[in-house]
Design a binder for these strands. Structure first.
Length: 717
DNA sequence: TTACCTCGAGATCA
DNA sequence: CTCGAGGTAA
């Protein structure tokens, strides 16, 4: 046998040994044997750089550090899951879902009654999308903003329980593209081991497993990641090229488990709310014996066609929900309440607390949201308050322990003047009275208010807005404290005129200034939608800004528009009603679709746009080279000439040449309205491979149906 | 909201 | 080497 053959043999053998050890818990060789063979392989590989394979078992011990993360698009967005916090909310979800399935997918019911729903413990780790192409691990992405995430393949390759090559088994056809979602975590036993080791080395121990895990994934050096022995559990479906791979979630999990992916053994199916709640109770007890932290139970509809029929709100899928176990709650002392000025001048009370350890973090601050809350709880400085972490992240002040109030404690008073510029505050009129739980908004309306200007600038440079990194909060403060002017958005684009002065600032070197100025330069070309969203105009966030930019080609067109033309989102409202009709959804969900430019918003926005300061700002930005053209604009001429303009289109099945979001974008850009479900108002259904209930429904309603070939034809024409 | 990693800056030491 | 800022997980 020559060395090349030996390399392949060893890789094969070690891959199987890894799987036997980590996923089957049934080792086929001793640890020592494994190490010896691994060393032999590493040596041979060193002699044969031409045979390099990123998926060789040797990479598990960690390869070379990478330079930085590349951010990449998810083939299918990673949405977040809605939460429920008690039995009643869970029952409501089950009722609604069952009803919707009755109308939307009953003809396509493939599962038995017992496995309508699937329950699994919710692992408290870091979400990940892992991609295999032709059975080879090619990429692992973090969730990021749901649309694009960081490529962390280098760190993920070191996870031993995650196969780098999928092995065909039991006649399972491995799809060309197989994307699996799951959770990376640090096993609790491993967490303890790491911290012991860190203390021995005189390093600070990690606070909690979840943050330590997130940190490990962000390690550029995979050798460090390899030593932390991360775990992985698969629990979701991403892009799968073969639509026949699975028709239910259980089937999917069974298949990928056979292919070697680790999945939880705590999964069960349930037929109704009672069974689900019973399962939640079981997991609540069982979870304390698991080697990973859990914060709830994930419940989903099993049948994939039904999942699709149920569809997705803008935030999260309707076919899946998380039940969160009650958050930890602890008493602490309210030391102070600060009044913060937001970017629109809104004043928000923020509590400073006696530090308290809660769910693995030290809590010292909590937002109090508004003054209705302060009044309702009758907060006094020095009060003992109950604090908990809502949704495991943001600390909330839940209640006051009245019996522990110190004598002479001073009540917290809402401010009457701006804590920063001392101008009188405006109290939003209709909310000022009667119901004390009602939000009472206080606002500083001084346009020159320094605190407000600061917040506006901080918002403007943020990642979601103009994305000017290396100009953060602290740097903004630092520059504003110097002689360099930074009082308007436009001043940002004049910073390059002050290069010398910037270099004089503390801890400001050549490199930092260079980075800062180049990212400012890069931000000039973000386009109208981003500029609008960045200005902190009331009621104009990312989605409204985008909607506006789709309708108006540039700033001048926007300025020329009258009040009526500023309400382009009427279509969205119709879709809300339609959805309500179809699914009998509750108000709250239907309302999500009502967030367009309403009359009031349009008025506020119109007034803002034509105000003198706004006009000056836009003019200056334009002069300084900021792109005020819309990048998302679709010409009405294109819309009218297109075969799709004004058509209501539904997509179903899987397509070869597009991902769904791609095609949705494309059709919408051509003036179509793409919706999730078929009704009598639908004009056209585009059916890919293995289309399900939607196709059946379209046929029964006599709606026009195209296959992908026809679609390509029409798009080409 | 907090914890963790990375990077640049500046200090310290060879 | 240490500090602090920035970014990103949940």
């Amino acid at each position: 046998m020559n060395e090349t053959e030996r390399i392949h043999e060893l890789r094969d053998l070690l891959t199987r040994a890894n799987k036997a050890y980590y996923t089957d818990a049934d080792p086929i060789m001793s640890d020592r044997e494994f190490d010896t063979l691994l060393k032999e392989l590493a040596k041979l590989e060193a002699n044969h750089p031409d045979l390099q394979d990123p998926n060789s078992p040797t990479v598990r011990v960690g390869g070379e550090p990478i330079d930085a993360f590349e951010t990449r698009k998810h083939a299918i967005p990673m949405l977040s899951i809605d939460n429920t916090y008690n039995e009643q909310e869970m029952r409501t979800w089950v009722d609604r879902t069952t009803k919707a399935m009755g109308t939307a997918g009953s003809d396509l019911f493939t599962g038995g009654a017992e496995d309508i729903f699937v329950c699994e413990p919710k692992v408290d780790g870091v979400a990940l999308s892992v991609r295999y192409e032709s059975g080879d691990f090619t990429q692992a992405l973090t969730r990021g903003d749901g649309t694009e995430g960081d490529d962390v393949s280098h760190a993920i390759r070191t996870i031993r329980s995650l196969p780098l090559k999928l092995e065909p088994k039991d006649g399972i056809n491995i799809p060309d593209t197989l994307e699996i979602r799951g959770e990376v975590y640090i096993p609790l036993s491993e967490f303890l081991r790491i911290n012991e080791a860190r203390e021995e080395n005189g390093e600070e121990p990690f606070m909690n497993p979840r943050n330590a895990c997130a940190g490990t994934i962000k390690q550029l050096n995979p050798k460090v990641a390899a030593q932390r022995n991360l775990g992985f559990l698969a629990h979701g479906i991403g892009e799968v090229s073969d639509p026949g791979f699975a028709s239910t979630f259980t089937e999917f999990i069974e298949s990928i488990t056979k292919l070697g992916l680790p999945t939880t053994d705590q999964r069960t199916t349930a037929a109704d709310a009672d069974a689900i709640l019973k399962e939640i109770n079981r997991i609540d007890t069982a979870r304390h014996d698991l080697d990973y932290a859990t914060d709830g139970v994930v419940v989903r509809v099993n049948d994939l066609a039904q999942q699709e029929a149920l569809g997705t709100t803008s935030k999260s899928p309707r076919w899946i929900i998380a039940y969160k176990f009650p958050a930890e709650r602890k008493p602490t002392i309210l030391l102070d309440v600060a009044h913060q000025v937001g970017k629109t001048g809104k004043i928000t009370p923020r509590a400073t607390l006696e530090p308290v350890l809660l769910a693995g973090t030290t809590v010292t601050h909590a937002t109090l949201h508004n003054y209705g809350m302060v009044r309702q709880r009758d907060l006094h400085i020095g009060d003992t308050v109950e604090v908990e972490k809502a949704g495991e992240i943001i600390p909330q002040v839940i209640s006051v322990v009245d019996s522990k109030r110190p004598k002479n404690a001073v009540p917290v008073k809402p401010p009457t003047e701006c804590p920063d510029c001392a101008s009188p505050l405006e109290i939003e009129p209709h909310e000022a009275i009667e119901d004390p739980t009602r939000e009472t908004i206080r606002r500083c309306v001084n346009p020159e208010c320094p605190a407000q200007i600061r917040e506006k600038l901080v918002w403007f440079v943020g990642r979601r807005q103009m994305d000017i990194d290396s100009l953060g909060e602290q740097t903004i403060d630092q520059i504003r404290a110097s002689d360099i002017p930074l009082n308007h958005f436009a001043d940002i684009y004049r910073l390059h005129e002050h290069r010398e002065a910037l270099l004089e600032l503390d801890r400001m070197g050549e490199k930092k200034v260079e980075n800062m100025l180049s990212s400012i330069e890069a931000s000039k070309s973000r386009g109208l939608a981003r500029v609008l969203a960045s200005m902190g105009i009331r009621h104009v966030g990312t989605s409204t800004a985008k909607a506006l930019a789709r309708v108006f080609p540039d700033y001048d067109a926007l300025l020329a528009a009258d009040l009526h033309q500023l309400m382009p989102m009427a279509i969205n409202r119709m879709s809300a009603k339609k959805r309500k009709e179809l699914f009998g959804l509750d108000e709250q969900i239907a309302d999500e679709y009502e967030t367009g430019l309403g009359e009031e918003t349009a008025q506020v926005f119109h007034a803002y746009l034509h105000s003198k300061p706004a006009r000056e700002t836009f003019e200056e930005l334009r002069k300084l080279g900021v792109d005020l053209q819309s990048h998302d604009y679709t010409d009405t001429k294109t819309q009218q000439s297109s075969a799709f303009s004004g058509k209501k289109i539904v997509l179903t099945g899987s397509l070869e040449h597009f991902t769904r979001p791609e095609l949705t974008d494309k059709l919408e850009s051509m003036g179509a309205k793409v919706s999730g479900s078929v009704s009598k108002n639908t004009d056209l259904v585009i059916a890919g491979e293995s289309a399900g209930s939607k196709l059946t429904k379209a046929e029964s309603l006599g709606i026009e149906v195209w296959d992908e070939a026809r679609l390509l034809n029409e798009l080409g024409a």
